[in-house]
Write a protein that binds this DNA or RNA. Structure first.
Length: 492
RNA sequence: CGGGAGGUAGUUCAGCCCGGUAGAAUACGUGGUUUGGGACCACGGGGUCGCAGGUUCGAAUCCUGUCCUCCCGACCA
C-alpha cells in the first residue's frame, strides 16, 4: 500500500487533495497558488474542452485569441469591472532584468526598464476585447460578433485550492456583441443552457440553472446567470456563469453601431465562461474513498485491460487476445489502455486504475483464455463479473453509457436529497449545520437580509432558480413579505 | 492578512530538545523467484539537510534573518 487515500469522513479537504495528487491529475508547483496540470489531468481537460468547443461551434461561435496583458488604462475603463477585480490583479511594471552587482550570479529588476504604463495580467478579458471590438463594429451588419477564446487568466487569490481556486487557471471566455438587448439576453441564456447540457450530459453533474443576486453578480454585468452544483460534503459549487452585460462595456469603450435607420446605438454584450474548476467539481461530485470516479464520456481512458499471466509463454498468448480486443474497442471509438507493463503486478494495477477512476477494467488471464471469458469490473459500483468474450465490444459500449447514466443518477439523487425547504430561521440554521446542501427558503429580496444571513451562517444565495414558482411567503430571516424561495448554501 | 503545520534521498518521514559530519520505509537500478487484489530475496546507486548570515574546533541540530509550501480562517467574478 503505497498510496493511502484519506477517507471523506476523516478529512474531506485532505481526501480531495489526495485524489488530485495521487490520482495523477495535478501537482503543486514552486509558484505560490499555481499548480502543474499533469498529463492525466490535462487529458481530462482536453476531453472537456473538446466537447465544449464543439458545442460552442455548433451554436455559431468561433475561436480567437487576445493578449494576456491589458494596459491599466483600458482595464480601468469599465469602473465596476475594474473595481471588482482590482484586489486580485498581478501587474507587470518592468520589462528587463540585469545582473545584481551586490550578489554574484543573481538578477535584479532593472530600474531603468520601468514601463510607462503598467500592464495588468488579465483576470478576465472584457477590457482588451471590447477595446478591440470598437475597431470592428460600425454597422448593424457587423453584428453579432460571437467569439470565444481558450486562455489562461490570473487572479491573485488569498487562498488557493487545487483546481477549485488557483492563481492561474485555464478557461474559456465567450465575448459576444449584439445589436439588440433581446438578442444579447437570448445569447446569455443559450450559453447557460450549453453549460448545463455539458455539465449534465458529459460530466454527469446535475446542475441548477439560476440567476445571481445583485451582490453575487459579476462586476460589470447587468445580470449573471449561473449553474450551481452540489458536492458530497454538502457545499455548493458555481460551475459556470453566463453574463448579460447590457451596454456597460460598449459605453465604457465607446462601441457604437449604426442601426438600419442610421441611428447610433451602443452595442449589447454578453460574456460567459467555465474553467478548470470544473475538474474540481467532477472530483468532488463523483469520487469515493478508493479514488476518482470519472464519467466515461470524458474519462481519458474508458477501459483498461490488465493481463494476468504466469511466464512469458502465457503472456504472449494473452497479449494476442488483449491486443485484438483493444483494437476492436478502439475501432468502436472506445478509449482503451492496454497495460502490459511487466513491472507491476495485477493487484497493483487494479488499485492504480481504481485510483485514477477508469470506468471499466477488463482482466484477462489463462483461465479466461481457456473459457473464452474475461473479468469485467466497473469502477462506479465496484461490480465484478466474469463474462463471455463474445460480443464484448458491443457490451462495453453499452456499459459505458450505463455507467455514465448511473453516475449521473447517483449524483442527482444526492443533490435532490440535499435540497431542503425550510420555513423558519431556526430550521434554516439547523439544516445548514446538520445536513448542509441547498436550502430553499423565502427571501425578502433585500441585500441587507442576504448579507446578514451570510454573516451569521456563511451561507450565500447561490441562485434564484430559473424555473422558480412565484408564491407569497415570509422571509425566513426578516419575516417580511417574499415572493419566492431562493437557494442558499455554503459554497466553494 | 490572522492562526496552525512544515521545508532532510524521487516520495512519505525519523533524526533536532541534549551539536560530533545523515537514516528508515517506499520508489529506482541489476539479477533471480513471482504474477486472478497494492509480491519476495540479494546486491546497488541516490541527499551541498529551503536559502543567507552568525555562534562553535565542529551545525541538519543552537541563534538571527529571509524565502517558499500546505491546512484553517478572512477574501473570493
Amino acid at each position: 500500500m503505497s498510496k493511502e487515500i484519506t477517507s471523506r469522513s476523516t478529512d474531506y479537504a485532505q481526501w480531495y487533495n489526495d485524489l488530485i495528487l495521487k490520482g495523477g491529475l495535478a501537482d503543486y508547483s514552486a509558484v505560490r497558488g499555481c499548480m502543474v496540470i499533469k498529463p492525466y489531468g490535462f487529458a481530462l481537460w482536453e476531453n472537456m474542452r473538446d466537447a465544449l468547443d464543439r458545442m460552442f461551434k455548433d451554436t455559431g461561435h468561433v475561436n480567437a485569441y487576445f493578449p494576456l496583458f491589458v494596459p491599466k488604462s483600458l482595464f480601468e475603463a469599465e469602473e465596476k469591472n475594474a473595481e471588482g477585480f482590482a484586489k486580485e490583479c498581478a501587474v507587470v511594471t518592468h520589462y528587463r532584468l540585469k545582473n545584481d552587482p551586490s550578489r554574484k550570479g543573481a538578477l535584479m529588476v532593472d530600474p531603468e526598464a520601468k514601463l510607462e504604463e503598467e500592464l495588468v495580467v488579465r483576470p478576465t478579458s472584457e477590457a482588451i476585447i471590447w477595446n478591440t471590438y470598437k475597431g470592428w463594429i460600425q454597422s448593424y451588419r457587423d453584428l453579432p460578433i460571437l467569439i470565444n477564446q481558450w486562455a489562461n487568466v490570473v487572479r491573485w487569490e488569498m487562498r488557493t485550492r487545487l483546481f477549485l481556486r488557483t492563481a492561474e487557471f485555464l478557461w474559456q471566455e465567450g465575448h459576444t456583441a449584439h445589436a439588440t438587448r433581446e438578442e444579447a439576453l437570448e445569447e446569455t441564456k443559450k450559453m447557460l443552457d450549453v453549460y448545463a447540457d455539458f455539465a449534465e450530459n458529459w460530466m454527469a453533474l446535475p446542475v441548477i440553472k439560476g440567476v445571481k443576486t445583485e451582490s453575487e453578480r459579476f462586476a460589470g454585468a447587468v445580470e449573471t446567470y449561473c449553474i450551481e452544483a452540489m458536492m458530497q460534503d454538502g457545499k455548493a459549487l458555481q460551475a459556470g456563469t453566463s453574463h448579460f452585460l447590457g451596454q456597460n462595456f460598449a459605453r465604457a469603450f465607446d462601441v457604437k453601431f449604426s442601426d438600419k435607420d442610421n441611428k447610433l446605438e451602443y452595442v449589447w454584450a454578453t460574456s460567459w465562461g467555465v474553467s478548470t474548476r470544473l475538474i474540481g467539481a467532477l472530483v468532488m461530485a463523483h469520487s469515493d474513498d478508493d479514488g476518482l470516479v470519472l464519467p466515461p464520456r470524458i474519462a481519458p481512458w474508458q477501459v483498461v485491460i490488465v493481463p494476468i499471466y504466469k511466464g512469458e509463454e502465457q503472456k504472449a498468448k494473452i497479449d494476442v487476445k488483449a491486443k485484438e480486443l483493444a483494437n476492436e474497442l478502439r475501432a468502436a471509438g472506445v478509449r482503451v489502455k492496454y497495460d502490459d507493463n511487466d513491472n507491476a503486478r495485477p493487484g497493483w494495477k487494479f488499485a492504480e486504475y481504481e485510483m485514477k477512476g477508469v470506468p471499466v477494467r477488463i482482466a484477462i488471464g489463462a483461465r479466461d483464455l481457456e473459457n473464452n471469458t474475461v473479468e469485467l469490473a466497473r469502477r462506479d459500483t465496484r461490480e465484478k463479473v466474469s463474462i463471455s468474450a463474445d460480443g464484448l465490444t458491443e457490451r462495453i459500449v453499452l456499459l459505458l453509457e450505463q455507467i455514465q447514466q448511473s453516475i449521473y443518477n447517483k449524483a442527482l439523487a444526492f443533490r435532490d436529497a440535499h435540497i431542503t425547504k425550510v420555513n423558519s430561521w431556526e430550521e434554516f440554521k439547523q439544516v445548514l449545520n446538520d445536513k448542509g446542501g441547498f436550502i430553499s427558503a423565502f427571501w425578502d429580496g433585500t441585500p441587507e437580509t442576504e448579507a446578514a444571513i451570510k454573516e451569521e451562517t456563511k451561507a450565500t444565495i447561490r441562485c434564484i432558480p430559473l424555473d422558480n414558482v412565484q408564491e407569497a411567503g415570509k422571509c425566513v430571516y426578516s419575516g417580511k413579505p417574499a415572493t419566492q424561495r431562493v437557494l442558499f448554501a455554503q459554497a466553494y
